[in-house]
Amino acid sequence: MARNSTARRLDETAPAAPGKRLEFGGGEPPAPPVRPNRPIGSNAWLATLMFLGAEAMFFAGLIGAFIVFRVGSAIWPPPFQPRLPVGITGVNTVILVFSAVTMHAALRSVRAGATARVSRMLAVTAVLGGVFLLIQGYEWAQLIHFGLTVSSSVYGGLFYTLIGFHALHVAGALIWLALVFIQAKSGRFSKQQHTGLRICVMYWTFVVALWPILYGLVYLY
């Protein structure tokens, strides 16, 4: 044992062969440096992700109910019921989709450090969302005037439930957006710290992405 240890020491003092890696004290080379763990997102981000999953399930339930009545009916829309305004709602869809573009522009701006542009983009998004809700409200007023109410038929009930819950979500997102806008104006967000804006963008994206599905199902199918 002692002989082996001496032999190892002698071997260590010998000049190293070209290309051979030298180490302290012989044995295995030290482990490569380990990078510290880096969180992929904040707790708020993860919670929003879970919340959006629950929201998706909620709307899936409503869509499931719509499928039962829509596929089960031979004639749709039922006779003597007003037709839904496809054209104006199509324009409204474009407006809402464009609001997601401006919302993501706000997120890109804060990531690039252009904090002044963030509040501008948020304001544009809020205006587009408001226009969407106004057009929806006008459309509803027209439909009620023509006799389509929640209790008039299954058709009316499904329409107001599905589209109404979506409009409620847009209104909620708009209130959230207003709060985020105030925070952005007061310089709360920076390139490094903008979780509040990020989760608001997530929610807005969900609300916008849901709308073309509902539009296709309720208005076009």
Partner: peptide, 12 residues
């Protein structure tokens, strides 16, 4: 058709 609608909804 109602049964088909239920089946489709269940699958969804």
């Amino acid at each position: 058709s109602v049964a088909d609608a239920f089946n489709l909804s269940v699958l969804f």
